[in-house]
Every structure is written in structure tokens, then in C-alpha cells.
Design a protein around this nucleic acid. Structure first.
Length: 996
RNA sequence: GCCCAGCUGGCGGAAUGGUAGACGCGCUGGUCUCAAACACCUGUGGGAAACCGUGCCGGUUCGAGUCCGGCGCUGGGUACCA
């Protein structure tokens, strides 16, 4: 009887599916445990071995928790709206829905083969109308909400309207647009519907507002930053410009502080939390107004001033100029006639540079003088106003007070344009700023040259400066965040329609009973000729009540994924996004596993929506996931062949006319041939080099036979599936392409053709993709699962290398033999042997092996150290094999411990032991300390390499007893170097911890 | 530049401050076989040995891969954020 993994695995997969073994119950006595994977986008390429890594880890935890008596929710679904299917639709005309369904079918097939314990009854697909109906519903809730700073949460917009009707907006403390005008209750009532709508829009959390976006006119769409390379679109290479556009956005900035605070309560890695903190980018400072002094301008603008934001109010006396962003609204009015031409040229140039481009050459200092001045609020001196693109329009006020002595960017600008540098913090070593040193940015030192701040430490100076600024009404303490509102509209087809229609130019949200607003059919998936989104193509027939236009943008990719963890709790609910009862039961995700690339995207948005839904009372939790683990990426290991191509030919031999065959050299020859660059060839004797290279290829050739032909070679990816241990399967390679049919291989000293290799991203184009199907076919899914976990720590990135897989596969075979081999007379090959299980009492040594394993495995799983736990299984099975132990009392608990890792083989063997129930319902065994103490330990301890003593322990002691013995031995330890023994003792680490 | 993570045999990697290198791969030698594959058993950080060994320098400690200070390198994130 052999370990026939193919039959075993397909049988058990069928069994689990028909019996719904892993369906979660919505309640009961057991404690709940929610294990979630980040759901995949079903791409056309299918899964490669890297994708299931996180799923295997979460499945192990899910299965383990079931054994431990938890009611486990472990669902899976698809993030099925997205760009690739749409791109494919544009090229082929095939509806993205069809592409997506095909891809999902393929994913499902692959996932099933690995033997995951997902509860498929709860599957969600973000592109299903039954699902996105509720994504739209949540959008409407957000649209109908405003953020009340007083209660510090989102509230329904009706409470705001009530307030407007009673008191106007003067007492409202809300997160809203900056330019909202003040009005009274009477004024509010007098506003037209359009005016009221516009005002409310400035308060809504989902709002239509102006935002700078990357606009590509040729493609007719907004592009995300990662779709732009060097200022042109990645696709097509068209120029991209920054454009102020009306866009749907979400006021995520209202939640900035709560998103920051919430991190403290989460069990996420520090690096991930830090990434979110940096992204939110809180900075505390103050706003400060500078009055414009030009007499010529003042006639038009009697109280013109520039407001800046600074985190260093203490350095206010060091201000030597003020810089505006090129987009700053006052640029035009502040420019004097003599500077007009230069400023306009500069602004136009800056406008045409994308933000990315601008960031690319940050070292290049550019700027222009406006000709105007502001008055320094404390010194009364004239301070010039400059324009510079190192100031960003979107952050703070779009204007900075430049203190070149204490800010490196201001310093660079001042140096470049010869502006004065005034030192106000004595911090540098000699107390004065030297020319070469650059700015002194540290927030340490005493203030100088600063009037009323002189002599104060930076921190005190900050407080005093802010107090004085507030006192004189020049500005006030302020907190700024780097986080921007999230742009929500996309000019795409394959996404959720935004459930809004326009009536008399006023946007209205649909009613709940009108959802879902189903994605309409279109003839083409491209934008219209006049730049409207693809949905505009359906507009003639797709109208609200047959006459009002719908919003033509769709939602971004992150919409559907921002709440899916809630839908799994109640996936079939037709009357609510999920019922309160079930969110109360399942609460937070207990363990969330996914890639770290979502650190500042998905993981921020899902936290935002969770907090929002809590504010409105729909759910009770504030954070989506308590514990989060980022699995590492599995990279591909690419192989290369090196093709020769002629570099120089000597016309004397007329080798030009020779029809050269396709030739390849091995890695080592490639390295030798290409050591010299082209210019070196020219410098040296080409003929000589040719001979050297030719001899490398053909050592036996005589000199006079050598044609004067020189070569270079270049690397080509070769399919890793026809390479084994870097040795090329030449026959398979020659058969792979017509061109290679008669290829010649130069292999040097050895016979095999050795390929080069490199670790790269796993991708089709690099021919380095290994699929889980290939592995399962050869070794089985249990082996695949074990091997992926055995590869190394879960959170670490690592290259895939199939070489070591025989180790874990051999382990499973060995386990199988514990049940089937007669366990005597040594190894028998394929000898047909029967199931051979004994009911004998296990020996103490066998029990020790088992209990040691139970303890370690449980600990390993609890700390997500799956690789070490597999090692511990191997040790266990090796010991049992050595002991020829085929006893039920040992093997039965062992199978339960192993079943989270290798569910198929353990189910099968469990059945062989006579159980009718699935192993997944068996309780996890409990280890017995009694068996864990060593029989006898000799443990040499040395101090300073001089004193040694040996600790000997009797058999079967508890850790307390061992500790007592060690304490009793205290006086035997003396130090030869005369030192007093401080704390004493050392105990064998495998028995007890250090005793203090 | 800033932030984070890491650096241990030929390789992937183990080690609550307590015998560094568990476990696996690879490699040695052997058993089985006509032979190969499979399987099983041996050995395997370096060194003849004394000893030396966890990126480098220093510190704390009876004792450091582990803790502290500094440096170097690798990988990741992020960036004119005032």
C-alpha cells in the first residue's frame, strides 16, 4: 500500500464539499474566531505558487482553532472589479463580466486543489449586483453624512440642516471645505435649492469637489500615479498634465486623528503601523499671516495678506523671504508689472510638469521673484515674496515663510538666488552658521537675534511665539496632515456605478429601494470622443426616471474591498449590508493575513469605513482587524541562456557571407566573453581578442582554422520548467521554438549546459512561473502546503526553489509507513503491506516524543512560526520510526496535531484508524508536562571558562522540582577570580528557565 | 535624506541571555539492486590539533547570535509635507 496522494486528496476534497465540513455556524456556545485572507483579484494568469502562501498560513490557523474548540469563520471571495479585465475588454470587446467569471472559475479550481477549509457558502464577489448594491448603499450613507468635530464623529446630514435652520453655520464645528462662507438661519432659508446643495456639499463626507488629478487628454481619463512614468502615460506614452477637476472625493482627512490613535490598540507589525503614521503625516504648528506691503497693490486689495503654515514659529525672526506655490491663488495679483512676463512663464512651465516629474528632480532649484513684499509682523521689515515649485499647493496653505538658516530647502533656495540668511538658533558647534554647513534644522539650542525670544530654548520659544502670534491675531496653533482626501471617481467602466443622478445641476443620491444601480451595457469600453467616461456611452437610454443623467464615473478599486469583511458575516442578506446581530456576534477579524503592499491603501480605507459605519451605529467595532500579518512575497528564480551574436567580422575572410547558426554559450563562457567592453576591444587588438574568444568556444581548433569572428553574448530568459538545478534540458529547449531546432551549445569543459539564474518577480514574461498545480501533480497538495510553510518565516520574502521539496514529501511518506509497514526487517521497497496498528501501551520514551511535539506545535502555531513546527513534526516522526512505534495511542493524537498542515493525508489515516467523523472536529490533544522532563541530564556549566560543574537530574521531575534542586546546588558554584556570586543559577534550558 | 526590517555553514533556515548551526536541501561513504531510480543507514561549520567561529568595533554580564552604543552592508517603505 503506497501513499497515493492523488486519490486521497481528490476523495477528501469531494467529501468536505458535499458534507460542508467547514461551514461556520452563526452562533452557539463555542467562542468565535474569524480568520480572514485578503481576497484576490482574479487575474487571467491564474495562481502561481506565491499566491497561496498567506492562504495556507491562515488555513492552518483556522483548522487549528477548530481543533481547539472555536467556531471558526474562514471565508473567501473575489475582488472582481478592476483594470485588467477592462483593458482586455477594450482590446477584444469581450465583456469584462465574462472574463472575470472565467478567471474566477480557474481560481476556484486551483484553490480547491490545495484543500483549503473555506466556507464557500459565504463567497462574495465585489462585481455582483447583490454585493455592490450594498457598496452603493454605504456610499449613500457617507454622502448623507457630515463630520461633527464637537461629537467627534460622523452624523446624518439632517442634523446639520436642522442646525442651519436654527442658527445658520456660525456655531457649527465641522470638517468641511476651507472656503465655506458664514451665514445666518434666515440667510439659509433664503438660499435657493442649488445654493443649499452647494453648501451641504462642502460638508458631506462623500462630496463632489475640485481636486488636482493626473489627466491624460489623449486617453481621456484620470490616471493613478503608478500609471505614469517620467511624466507620460505608461500606456501609449502620452503627456499627462495636472488638472483641477470636479471629482467625487471622500473626506478621509476627517478621520486622520482617529486613524492615528486607533493604531495603538492594534496587534499589527510596528513597520506597518509606522507606514500608516507616516502616510497620515501629522504635524503640529501654527498659521501666520503676513501683510502685503506694496503700495501699488494695496489700493486694489486693502487687506491683502499671505497665510503660511509653519512647524517652527520659534524661528519667525529668521524669515528672509516668503515662497508661494506656483498654483497659489494670489500669484497673479501679487506680481508687479515688471515681473509679469517672468512669473507667467514660470507658472506655465510649472503647471505642465506633473507632480511626479516635479518630485523626480527635487535637487533642481527653480523660482522667480514676484516684485512684491510682505511686512514682517514683528520687525516691520520688508520681506520679498518669491514663487518656487518646492512649495506644494496641496499642503498647508501653499505658502511658506522661508527661514534659510534653519530649513535645508529654504537654505538651498536662498543660496541659489542670493537671498539673506539670518541665524536665530545658536545650535551649530561654534554658535554661528558657517558657509559650508548648510542649515541647522535641529530643534535644539537657544534663540538669538530674536527680540522677545532671545535666550529661550527652542521648545519654550515655540510656545511663546505661538502665544504672541495668537495674541496679536496673526494666526493660531494648527495641526496639519499629509493625508489628502481620497479621490473616489474613476473614468472607468468596470467598477461600481456611483448611485447619484443630476437634476437641474444638483446631485441627488438614489433611494435605498432603487439600488442596485446596475452597470449599464455599452458598445465600447473606451471613453467617448469628447472625453466623457465610458458610462456616458449608455447615457441616451440610461437615465434616472428616464430623464435625469446618472453620474458617469464609477467607484475606485478600493470601494468594494473596504467593507467585504462585514459581508462574509451575512453574505446572503438581501435586506441589509449585514445584520447587526451577526456583526455583534462575529465582531472584529481576529487574524487578517495579506500583503504589505496594501499598507497605505486598502488597510487605511477599510479602517476609515469601519469607523464611519460605527459612527452611524451600524456596527459596534472601531477597527476591522485585531491582528494582522503580512506574508512575504515569493519571488521567482529565473534561468537564462546566453545567445551569441557576432560583434566584428573580418572582411578578409568574408565571414559576412557565412550563415551563422543559432549558438548559445554557458554562463561561465558568457562571463569570460563579455568581460571586455566594446571600447576595450577597439583599444586592444581585435584579432587577438577574436582568437581568444573563439578558442574559448572551440578549444581544439587550430589557429589557422579560426575565422576572425568575434562575439558578444546576451542573456535570454528560458522557461524554468525545462531547467533542472540550472542544467538545461537541451532537447526540450531545441523543440521549444523552430528557430532553436539546430541550435549549437558551447558548454566549455563540462558536458551540461549550465544556465545563469537570478531572483526576480514571478511573472509570465520572465518564464519563471511555477504553479501550485505543477507541484500538486508531482507531490500532492499536502506536500505543497508543508513545503510553502517550510520555506522560511511567513513574513519574509524568499525565492521559490523546488529543490528541497523531497524533504517534506519524504516526511509524509514516512508518516504513511508508520501505519502500513510491518516495521521490522528494515526497509522494504514497494512491498505490499497491510495496515498495522497496535493497541499496545506506549512506552515512556514514546509518550515523551508525542507530548514534546504537541507542546511545540501548539506554541509554534500560536506564534505563527510554521516552519519550525514542521521541523518538530519531522523530528517526531523520525523518533517514532526509530522506535518502530505503530501504537494507536501515539499516532492518533499526532494526526490531529498534523492535520492543520496536511489535511488530506491525516483525514485518510484517521479514517484508517476507524473514525467515522472528519478529523477536523477532533479536539486538539493536550500535552502532559510529566512526560516532558528529561530522564537524566548532564549539563556542563562554565563561568569565565574556569569553573565547571555538572548538573545531574533524576527522572520525571516537574519543573518546580528541578528548580528546587538547582537552588539547592547554589553553594557549589564559586568563582575562581574572586568575584562574589551575584545571582545564581543556570539550569538546563530545555527543562526550566533561568532561575534568578 | 527620513522611517522600518534584516545580516548565522555550500544553500533555505533553528536557537524565552545558558552546549550556536535544530529541521530540510546538497554533498560523503555504505546497504538493497545486474544496474539505475526509490528507500534505508553513516558522516557533514572551519581546523591535524590547540582552538576559531553568528557583518564590523566597543560595552553590560559569570555567560551575548540574542541586551546597550557606534559603524558597514542588503532589502522594503516614503519623500521638497514647511
Amino acid at each position: 500500500m503506497e501513499y497515493n496522494f492523488k486519490e486521497i486528496e481528490s476523495n477528501w476534497q469531494k467529501y468536505w464539499a458535499t458534507n460542508k465540513t467547514f461551514a461556520a455556524k452563526d452562533g452557539g456556545d463555542k467562542p468565535k474566531y474569524y480568520v480572514l485572507d485578503m481576497f484576490p483579484y482574479p487575474s487571467g494568469a491564474g495562481l502561481h505558487v506565491g499566491h497561496p502562501l498567506g492562504y495556507i498560513a491562515s488555513d492552518i490557523v483556522a483548522r487549528y482553532k477548530r481543533h481547539k474548540g472555536f467556531n471558526v469563520l474562514h471565508p473567501m471571495g473575489y475582488d472582481s472589479f478592476g483594470l485588467p479585465a477592462e483593458q482586455y475588454a477594450i482590446q477584444t470587446g469581450q465583456h469584462p463580466k465574462i472574463t472575470t467569471e472565467q478567471n474566477i472559475a480557474r481560481y476556484r479550481e486551483q484553490l480547491d486543489k490545495i484543500g483549503f477549509s473555506f466556507d464557500w457558502d459565504r463567497e462574495v464577489r465585489t462585481s455582483n449586483p447583490e454585493y455592490y448594491k450594498w457598496t452603493q448603499w454605504i456610499f449613500i450613507q457617507i454622502f448623507n453624512s457630515w463630520y461633527n468635530n464637537s461629537s467627534n464623529k460622523a452624523e446624518n446630514i439632517s442634523s446639520l440642516i436642522t442646525e442651519f435652520e436654527a442658527n445658520g453655520n456660525t456655531k457649527v464645528n465641522a470638517v468641511c471645505d476651507e472656503d465655506v462662507k458664514q451665514f445666518t438661519a434666515a440667510e439659509w432659508k433664503a438660499f435657493s435649492e442649488k445654493e443649499q446643495s452647494d453648501i451641504l456639499m462642502a460638508y458631506r463626507i462623500a462630496y463632489l469637489g475640485e481636486a488636482y488629478v493626473n489627466w491624460c487628454p489623449q486617453l481621456g481619463t484620470v490616471l493613478a500615479n503608478d500609471e505614469i512614468k517620467d511624466g507620460v502615460s505608461e500606456r501609449g506614452g502620452y503627456p499627462v498634465e495636472r488638472k483641477l477637476m470636479k471629482q467625487w472625493s471622500m473626506r478621509i482627512t476627517a478621520y486622520a486623528q482617529r486613524l492615528l490613535d486607533g493604531l495603538d490598540s492594534l496587534d499589527w507589525t510596528e513597520s506597518l503601523k509606522e507606514a500608516q503614521r507616516n502616510w497620515i503625516g501629522k504635524s503640529e504648528g501654527t498659521s501666520l499671516k503676513f501683510k502685503v506691503s506694496n503700495s501699488s497693490l494695496i489700493t486694489h486689495h486693502s487687506s491683502l495678506h499671505i497665510e503660511v503654515f509653519t512647524t517652527r514659529p520659534d524661528t519667525v525672526f529668521g524669515v528672509s523671504f516668503v515662497t508661494l506655490a506656483p498654483e497659489h491663488e494670489l500669484v497673479t495679483s501679487l506680481t508687479t508689472p515688471e515681473n509679469k512676463a517672468a512669473v507667467e512663464a514660470y507658472v506655465t512651465q510649472a503647471k505642465n510638469r506633473s507632480e511626479r516629474e516635479r518630485q523626480a528632480d527635487v535637487n533642481k532649484i527653480t523660482g522667480v521673484f514676484t516684485g512684491s513684499y510682505v511686512i514682517h509682523p514683528f520687525t516691520g521689515k520688508q520681506v520679498p515674496i518669491w514663487i518656487g515649485d518646492y512649495v506644494l499647493a496641496g499642503y498647508g496653505t501653499g505658502a511658506v515663510m522661508a527661514v534659510p538658516a534653519h530649513d535645508s530647502r529654504d537654505y538651498g533656495f536662498a543660496k541659489h538666488f542670493g537671498l539673506p540668511i539670518l541665524e536665530v538658533v545658536a545650535g551649530s558647534a561654534n554658535g554661528t552658521l558657517s558657509e559650508v554647513e548648510g542649515s541647522y534644522d535641529a530643534k535644539e539650542g537657544k534663540l538669538i537675534n530674536s527680540d522677545f525670544l532671545n535666550g529661550l530654548e527652542v521648545k519654550e520659544a515655540m510656545k511663546k511665539a505661538i502665544a504672541e502670534i495668537e495674541n496679536q491675531g496673526l494666526g493660531k496653533g494648527k495641526i496639519n496632515y499629509r493625508l489628502r482626501d481620497a479621490v473616489f471617481g474613476r473614468q472607468r467602466y468596470w467598477g461600481e456605478p456611483i448611485p447619484v443622478y443630476y437634476k437641474n445641476d444638483i446631485p441627488y443620491a438614489l433611494n435605498e429601494n432603487e439600488l442596485p444601480l446596475v452597470l449599464p451595457e455599452v458598445d465600447k469600453y473606451l471613453p467617448t470622443e469628447d472625453g466623457e467616461p465610458p458610462l456616458a456611452r449608455a447615457a441616451s437610454s440610461w437615465k434616472y426616471e428616464g430623464k435625469y443623467d446618472y453620474e458617469h464615473s464609477t467607484m475606485p478599486g478600493w470601494a468594494g474591498s473596504s467593507w467585504y469583511f462585514l459581508r462574509y458575516m451575512d453574505a446572503a442578506n438581501g435586506s441589509a449590508f449585514t445584520s447587526k446581530k451577526l456583526t455583534d456576534y462575529w465582531q472584529q477579524v481576529d487574524l487578517y493575513i495579506g500583503g504589505s503592499e496594501h499598507a497605505t491603501g486598502h488597510l487605511l480605507y477599510v479602517r476609515f469605513w469601519t469607523k464611519f459605519l460605527k459612527d452611524l451605529g451600524y456596527i459596534a467595532i472601531d477597527e476591522p482587524a485585531k491582528k494582522l500579518i503580512n506574508q512575504g512575497m515569493i519571488q521567482g528564480r529565473s534561468n537564462f541562456v546566453y545567445r551569441l551574436s557576432p560583434l566584428f567580422r573580418y572582411s578578409e575572410l568574408e565571414t559576412d557571407k557565412v550563415n551563422l547558426p543559432v549558438m548559445f554559450v554557458t554562463k561561465s563562457l558568457h562571463d569570460k566573453i563579455n568581460t571586455n567592453s566594446l571600447s576595450d576591444f577597439e583599444k586592444n587588438n581585435i584579432k587577438e581578442q577574436s582568437i581568444i574568444n573563439f578558442k574559448l568556444l572551440n578549444p581544439s581548433a587550430k589557429e589557422e582554422e579560426i575565422g576572425f569572428l568575434n562575439f558578444k553574448s546576451h542573456a535570454l530568459h528560458v522557461d524554468v520548467n525545462i531547467v533542472q538545478n540550472d542544467v538545461l534540458n537541451q532537447a526540450a529547449f531545441m523543440a521549444s521554438r523552430d528557430e532553436y531546432k539546430h541550435a549549437i551549445f558551447f558548454t566549455g569543459e563540462i558536458e551540461d549546459y549550465i544556465c545563469g539564474h537570478e531572483v526576480e518577480k514571478m511573472s509570465k514574461s520572465k518564464y519563471n512561473v511555477v504553479t501550485p498545480d505543477d507541484i500538486a501533480e508531482k507531490f500532492g497538495s499536502d506536500t505543497l502546503r508543508l513545503y510553502e510553510m517550510f520555506l522560511g518565516p511567513l513574513e519574509q520574502s524568499k525565492p521559490w526553489n523546488t529543490n528541497g521539496i523531497t524533504g517534506v514529501h519524504g516526511f509524509l511518506k514516512k508518516l504513511w509507513r508508520l501505519f502500513y509497514s510491518p516495521l521490522q526487517g528494515g526497509a522494504q521497497g514497494a512491498g505490499d503491506v497491510a495496515l498495522n496498528i497496535s493497541n499496545d501501551e506506549p512506552t515512556k520514551a514514546e509518550l515523551k516524543t508525542l507530548h514534546k511535539t504537541i507542546k511545540k506545535i501548539a506554541e509554534d502555531i500560536e506564534r505563527f512560526s510554521f516552519n519550525t513546527s514542521i521541523s518538530n513534526f519531522m523530528i517526531c516522526v523520525n523518533e517514532l520510526t526509530d522506535a518502530k512505534c505503530n501504537k494507536r495511542a501515539i499516532l492518533e493524537p499526532l494526526l490531529i496535531c498534523l492535520s492543520p498542515y496536511a489535511p488530506h493525508i491525516t483525514e485518510e489515516l484517521w479514517k484508517q484508524l476507524g473514525h467515522n467523523e472528519s478529523i477536523s472536529t477532533a479536539p486538539f490533544p493536550i500535552h502532559n508536562e510529566e512526560f516532558l522532563v528529561a530522564d537524566s541530564v548532564n549539563y556542563p556549566v562554565s563561568f569565565n571558562g574556569k569553573v565547571k560543574f555538572t548538573l545531574e537530574l533524576a527522572a520525571t521531575l516537574t519543573s518546580q522540582e528541578v528548580e528546587a534542586i538547582v537552588r539547592a546546588n547554589e553553594q557549589t558554584i564559586k568563582f575562581l577570580d574572586g568575584k562574589e556570586p551575584k545571582k545564581v543559577i543556570v539550569v538546563p534550558k530545555k527543562i526550566v528557565n533561568m532561575v534568578v
